[in-house]
Design a protein around this nucleic acid. Structure first.
Length: 572
RNA sequence: CGGGGCGUGGCGCAGUCUGGUUAGCGCACUUGCUUGGGGUGCAAGGGGUCGGCCGUUCAAAUCGGCUCGCCCCGACCA
C-alpha cells in the first residue's frame, strides 16, 4: 500500500485525551480516533491489526473444534430477566428502548442469547459437545471509560459458549479452550499468565483470566502469584495462609473503656493507644441488598468486598452511609465496634477469633474498648475469609512459597458456568439414561481490541509502537528518503513490488516529505522492518534494513533486501 | 454517583479574573520558491456561530443561570 493513498493521520503532538502510553500512541500514530467517551473509530492501520488478531483467534478457535456464528447485538430484555441478569448486571448493562417503549439490551455477552438459540433444538446428548463462538462488537455501560480501547463502552470481543452433557466432558471442553487461549495469545506475540478469578455477575463455579503482565500503569489488575508453585490469582480472588493460625496465648484481661478523642482511623487509634494495628479489629458497616451487616477485620488488613459479597450471596454490597452508621452504632463513623451492636449480623475474618485482648470501637463518640475478647464480651455470627491477600504472605496452595504481585492487563477470560443459564432458561437435553438434564456450560471471552492495545502497552518505546510481527498492520515499510530523486523512487518501488510478489505485506512511504518526517512517522507507526532507500547507500547499490525492535540497521545489496526481510521476519 | 478541571479554526493552547480595537499564537492545510539521511527555510493565503440556550448590559469569548459534552481522581467491573 502506498502511504499517499491510505489514511494515516499521525500527529506531531501528544493528544491530551490519553493518559497511558498505548492509548497515546494509538491516537498519535493514526490508528484510532475517539467518537465519544469509550467509543472509537478504527482507522486503516488499526483495522488491519484487528483483522490480524481476529484471524489468529478464528484459526485457533476453529482448530479447537468451535464453530463460528453471529448473534444479534440487540437483545429483548425478557431474556435477561429470565436469567436474572437484568437486575444483577445492573448498571453495566447497556440498555435501550424502542418506539413501543420496550426494553432492549445491547449485548455485552451472549449467554442468554446462545442458550435460547439451542434450547429446544439441541435435544439429545448425541448432539453434544457443542461450542459456538462469534466475533462482534460488544457494549458495556462503563461507569468510567478509560485508557482508550482498554475500557471502552463499545469494543470487539470473541465470545465462545460450550455445551456439555456432564462434568467430565465439560472438563475436556474447558481445557481445550485454555490450550487454545495460550496458543492464541502466544501467536499474537503476547506471553500470558492464567490466574484464578472471581465469577462476578457472570455466575457459575469458577473462572480464570488471561493476563498480559506489564509494568506500566496500563496494567489495571493486580495479580498474585506464588514463587514456588503455579498458584496465581487476581486481587479479588487471591487468598493466603494466615500468618499465625494459632490462638494467641494471652490470658484475658479485664475489659476497659478508654477515651480516644478524635481518634477514628486505625492509624490514629493505634498511635494514641500505642498498640500495633494487628491488635485492633475494624468494624465496617455494609448494606447488603439494603440489610446492614457488620464486617470485622484486623486493623492491618484491607477488606475484600468481593469475598464478603460472595459469602453473603447478595447482589448489591455497599458501605453504609454515615447516617446509617450513626443510627446503628449511636456514634460517628470511626467508633463502631461489635459490643452491644443490636440487630446486625457480624461477619468476621478468620483471623479475628485468634485475637486476644484487642481494641475495638465502643459505639460511642471518642471512646474505644481495650482488652476485648470474643465470647466473653460479644459473639460473632459468622467467620470466613474476607481480607485481601498481601504480598509476601504464604501461598494457600503449596503452603510453602511466598506470594508476589504484578500488574496485568486482562485479555481473556473463561468461566465455568455450570447450569446457571441452562436452568434459568430451561435449556435441557435427553441423556443416555433417558432423563432430561440441563446443559453444563462454559463461556470464554477474548477482547480483540484490548489485546491489540495490550500489545502496544507491552511493546513500545519513546519513539512509538513496536508491533509483534504477527499482528503488525504491515511487515515492512519501504522508505525512499527523497522522492524527488528518481533513482531512489524507482529502486524503492522495485523493492516494494518484490515484497508483494514474495507475499510480504509492505507499506511504501511515497510522500514528498523530508526524510526526518518519514523516519519519525515510521518509528511511530511501528512496523517491524523498514527499508531505507537513500542516495548514500544506492551509490554502492545497497539499501538499509532497520529493525524496529532492536534499532539495528543492516546494509544489504538492493537485490537482497527482500530476501533479507523474509529472513528477519521469521524471527520477529 | 462524589471530588477536581476543561470546552475558543483540524490538533495543541493564550485571551476570561478586571466586559469595550479587526479574537491571537504554535502545529497542520493551500500556493510559490527553497531544502533533501532524523519533524528545512522564506513569503503569501484559506479557515473560528468562542459547546448550546436564556439572561444582565449601550456593549459578552469575558458576568449570571440552566443545559450538553469531555477529561482527571474515587467508588464499580461480564
Amino acid at each position: 500500500m502506498k502511504w499517499s493513498q491510505t489514511y494515516i493521520p499521525t500527529l506531531r503532538d501528544d493528544p491530551t485525551e490519553a493518559e497511558i502510553a498505548s492509548h497515546r500512541l494509538l491516537v498519535r500514530a493514526g490508528y484510532i480516533r475517539k467518537l465519544a467517551a469509550g467509543v472509537y473509530n478504527y482507522l486503516p492501520l488499526m483495522q488491519r491489526v484487528l483483522l490480524k488478531v481476529t484471524q489468529i483467534v478464528r484459526e485457533e478457535m476453529n482448530a479447537s473444534g468451535a464453530q463460528e456464528i453471529l448473534m444479534p447485538v440487540l437483545h429483548p430484555s425478557e431474556l435477561w430477566r429470565q436469567s436474572g441478569r437484568w437486575e444483577t448486571v445492573g448498571r453495566e448493562l447497556m440498555r435501550a428502548r424502542d418506539r413501543h417503549d420496550r426494553d432492549l439490551v445491547l449485548g455485552g455477552t451472549h449467554e442468554e442469547v446462545v442458550t435460547s438459540l439451542i434450547r429446544g433444538e439441541v435435544k439429545s446428548y448425541r448432539q453434544l459437545p457443542l461450542n459456538l463462538y462469534q466475533i462482534q462488537n460488544k457494549f458495556r455501560d462503563e461507569i468510567r471509560p478509560r485508557f482508550g480501547l482498554m475500557r471502552g463502552r463499545e469494543f470487539i470481543m470473541k465470545d465462545a459458549y460450550s455445551f456439555d452433557k456432564d462434568e467430565e466432558s465439560f472438563k475436556v471442553a474447558y481445557q481445550k479452550m485454555l490450550d487454545a487461549y495460550f496458543k492464541t495469545f502466544s501467536r499474537c506475540g503476547l506471553e500470558t499468565r492464567m490466574v484464578e478469578a472471581d465469577t462476578g455477575a457472570m455466575g457459575g463455579k469458577a473462572a480464570h483470566e488471561f493476563m498480559v503482565i506489564v509494568d506500566t500503569e496500563g496494567g489495571e489488575n493486580i495479580i498474585f502469584y506464588c514463587d514456588k508453585c503455579d498458584y496465581a490469582a487476581n486481587m479479588d480472588k487471591a487468598s493466603s495462609l494466615e500468618e499465625n493460625p494459632q490462638e494467641e496465648e494471652e490470658s484475658e484481661k479485664p475489659l476497659e473503656k478508654v477515651a480516644t478523642p478524635d481518634a477514628k482511623s486505625v492509624e490514629e487509634v493505634t498511635a494514641f493507644l500505642d498498640v500495633p494495628a494487628r491488635k485492633l479489629a475494624k468494624t465496617l458497616l455494609y448494606k447488603a441488598d439494603g440489610k446492614v451487616v457488620a464486617a470485622m477485620i484486623r486493623g492491618d488488613r484491607q477488606i475484600n468486598e468481593i469475598k464478603l459479597e460472595n459469602f453473603l450471596g447478595c447482589i448489591n454490597l455497599e458501605m453504609a452511609d454515615a447516617q446509617t452508621v450513626e443510627k446503628i452504632t449511636g456514634a460517628a463513623v470511626g467508633f463502631a465496634g461489635p459490643l452491644n451492636l443490636k440487630g446486625v449480623t457480624i461477619v468476621a475474618d478468620e483471623e479475628i477469633p485468634r485475637l486476644r485482648n484487642f481494641v475495638t470501637g465502643a459505639n460511642q463518640n471518642d471512646y474505644h474498648f481495650k482488652n476485648v475478647n470474643i465470647g466473653r464480651d460479644f459473639k460473632i455470627d459468622q467467620v470466613t475469609e474476607i481480607r485481601c491477600a498481601q504480598e509476601g504472605e504464604t501461598c494457600p496452595r503449596c503452603e510453602k512459597g511466598k506470594l508476589y504481585t504484578n500488574r496485568g492487563i486482562e485479555v481473556g477470560n473463561t468461566f465455568m458456568l455450570g447450569t446457571k443459564y441452562s436452568q434459568a432458561l430451561g435449556a435441557n437435553f435427553l441423556d443416555v439414561d433417558g432423563k432430561e438434564k440441563p446443559f453444563i456450560m462454559g463461556s470464554y471471552g477474548i477482547g480483540i481490541t484490548r489485546t491489540a492495545q495490550a500489545a502496544v502497552e507491552k511493546f513500545h518505546d519513546e519513539k512509538g509502537i513496536i508491533w509483534p510481527a504477527s499482528i503488525a498492520p504491515y511487515s515492512v515499510e519501504v522508505l525512499p528518503l527523497n522522492v524527488a530523486d528518481e533513482m531512489q523512487t524507482r529502486v524503492a518501488f522495485e523493492i516494494y513490488e518484490k515484497t508483494k510478489e514474495q507475499g510480504i505485506e509492505a507499506l511504501i512511504d511515497d510522500r514528498d516529505e523530508r526524510a526526518g518526517v518519514k523516519f519519525n512517522d515510521a518509528d511511530l507507526i511501528g512496523l517491524p522492518l523498514r527499508i531505507n532507500v537513500g542516495a548514500k547507500s544506492l551509490k554502492e547499490n545497497k539499501v538499509e534494513i532497520g529493525v524496529r525492535k532492536t534499532r539495528e540497521v543492516i546494509s544489504v545489496g538492493q537485490n537482497q533486501a527482500v530476501e533479507k526481510c523474509k529472513e528477519l521476519l521469521s524471527d520477529l
